[in-house]
Design a protein around this nucleic acid. Sequence first.
RNA 1: GCCGGUGUGUUGGAACUGGCAGACGAGACGGACUCAAAAUCCGUUGUCAGCGAUGGCGUGUGGGUUCGAGUCCCACCACCGGCACCA
Length: 804
Amino acid sequence: MSQAYEHLSIEKKWQDIWDAEQAFKADDSDLTKPKFYGLIEFPYPSGAGLHVGHPRSNTALDIISRKRRMQGYNVLYPIGWDAFGLPTENYAIKNNIHPEIVTKQNIDHFREQLKKIGFSFDYSREVNTTDADYYKWTQWIFLQLFKKGLAYKSEIAINWCTSCNVGLANEEVVGGVCERCGGEVIRKTKSQWMLRITDYAQKLLDGLEDVDFIEKVKTQQRNWIGKSQGALVKFNVPEYNDNLTVFTTRPDTLFGATYMVISPEHPMIDALGSKIKNLDVVLAYREEAQKKSDFERTETAKDKTGVVLEGITAVNPLTNTLIPIWVSDYVLMSYGTGAIMAVPAHDERDWAFAKKFDLPIIEVVAGGSVQEEAFTDIQSGTMVNSGFLNGMSVAEAKKAIIEYLTEKGIGEAKVNYKLRDWVFSRQRYWGEPIPLVYCEKCGWVPVDEHELPLRLPHTDDFIPTADAQSPLAKLEDWVNTTCPKCGGKARRETDTMPQWAGSSWYFIRYVDPHNTDVIADKEKMNYWLPVDWYNGGMEHTTLHLLYSRFWHRFLYDIGVVPTKEPYLKRTSHGMILGENSEKMSKSRGNVINPDDIVAEIGADAFRMYEMFMGAFDQAIPWSTKGARGCRRFLERVWRLQDIIKEEPITQERESMLHGMIKKVSDDIELMKFNTAIAAMMTYVNDIYRLGSISKEELKTLLVLLNPVSPHITEEMWELMGFEGRLYQTAWPICDETKLVKDEIEIVVQICGKIKAKLMVPATIDKAGMEKLVEENDTVKALVAGKEIKKIVAVPGKLLNIVAI
RNA sequence: GCCGGUGUGUUGGAACUGGCAGACGAGACGGACUCAAAAUCCGUUGUCAGCGAUGGCGUGUGGGUUCGAGUCCCACCACCGGCACCA
């Protein structure tokens, strides 16, 4: 009898051995070997410790990485810490502990937890975004962006979280509230560092064509970038010494433009000043609109408001009629030109506005009934009331009108994106200092690159100032400096970078984490980049994933990295819900702590259950009972030691074994871990039914199971006296010829109903199948006395006889 | 409103290019072992009718295509995720 399966001692033993043997160190010594770079999103080391969600992604890529090593690849599977950020800072403020200390404690805790689960990370390449040796390069990248004009300071209305006291990027505002804390977000005008991600909109869109991302991710990024093709059209406003330019995707409807609308923040209002007869009303409306947060604006989306500019009109350039100009907050200053031409007949918003304020609706595309509702179909309509466009389709009219406008100099084709520039400043302490100084004479001047890293100065006062400035602003000694250009007096930028900075390029640093001269060695980058497989959460699709693609593409453009895209393949895991099918959270009291599970059933069973619980990309409720089922399975595997017997390997056994090899190998590649594990369970069930297993069969099973449950398999490998370490053993290859059987079972149906099952030779063809109707007694009995109308024969599968 | 996804036993979920629905796990029930319990092992477990062999029904709803539909097509319902006054 085998000893009991003691997971605690076994797991500790092998984790120590792997550490001592540096089993999972990526090899930089031979850069010609086939490589595999697997990546998971490096964790934010929060005080709460590891969550059961982390291991889902980690285990999945751990399985793939372990399998790749066994397949002979040089594997890089690294880990690091995304450690700057608000939660740590808030914790530090609350408990009066320096964030540096908190961060170190949390990282140590996380590392210990991860090691206990047995991930095959190359810990020698750990990176930490709060390390000066690391953020030196984060700052360096920022300076390159600055030098190329992609970083600029702007006085803009930003999203301001009233609870974190910090500015937010558009991507960080979710449903009108702060993505991180759920606090109310208002508009606030502040001078902020911005990154011109919009310059990269087209490149980011095009890049999606060349990568293997799950379709969901591509679609979400495309929607977020939001490309739309249209035209700019200039409208003459006699009272204004400038034209009023609009962006429209429907230049074909220009003849139907019966009024214009500008956003409340539009500069034309200030330029016209008292020429607007009801200026006081207009300014009051502007003030009212500015008070609203974005959230309130969208909430009142259906009920349109607005005021007309009295005494001001615009000229429709095609009809030469005078049309009124309105101000309304449904037109956003931040998109297009902040002004639109309103075509109520063919746009739902304009239609609603026209109905409310009783403005004329002129049909220019026939096909609907525009007095009842806006007709927006662009496929079927024909142009009417549109002069030279009459009779054309919408597509033809679009082309013709753009040509006409261009020729006359009153318009041009134009592409617009919904994507906005990235607000890059944070008024907080725990982030990378922005390496710029402000000099009265020279303006914004970058810190000399040799001065990097610009270290975050030590302070115990992390609270933002009363006027919502970073705590760094209080450190006068640090702030006051000299201008690197002219040597005169200068002040440092006191805002810090957002959390997304450090995580936008960490996968590059993993390639060469200890390099002190360059961001990473060229040859190493040529070898390891791009990341072959990146798994992470859907919630990062329009944040981290887009930002890091932007930075990477920029680094490619300036010749720093060798590839346009950072990630070849992107997959995504589903969330793990609480046992009550609700999102896990402290307040709901349904949080499962991985430590408890690992202690009770072991890391091997925990890993297995995380993969077995359901489809990898779907949200699944946790079930501790289900997890215990995986533990039971591992015990059954363990006890296979007791039924080892050397017997001749029958065809049935060979077929079982190779069927499992194929299923497990294929399913892991497709991330169908649940069915891969089920195949191993089925195999073990069959083995117990047969009553014995040979050493060779057990050997193969251990190899296949190793990526999922590495400790128990390595222990059994040693107990069985197999050669070397299991983690260094080659992955088995399915011998397809072993799957072929002499006889196979087919199904006999009468009118689609299953009536019998027959064993037939595996080589049977269609004619042979059809002959069964006359030659096989079972089939003959089924059709006796019936008239056969049709015979459908699928060789090796089924025979369906239509007979009455 | 738009885009994407999902809907299968008591339950988590399987089902390759249309071909045996419910693999594998959980739970439940029955049995063996035990003084007893736990653990383990064996068996049963979609539903209705029948002692039974067997037969009817069954993959959100309603239609359709097909010898054959969970899978394909049309219409609809419910839930989840993303975007949303983007001109």
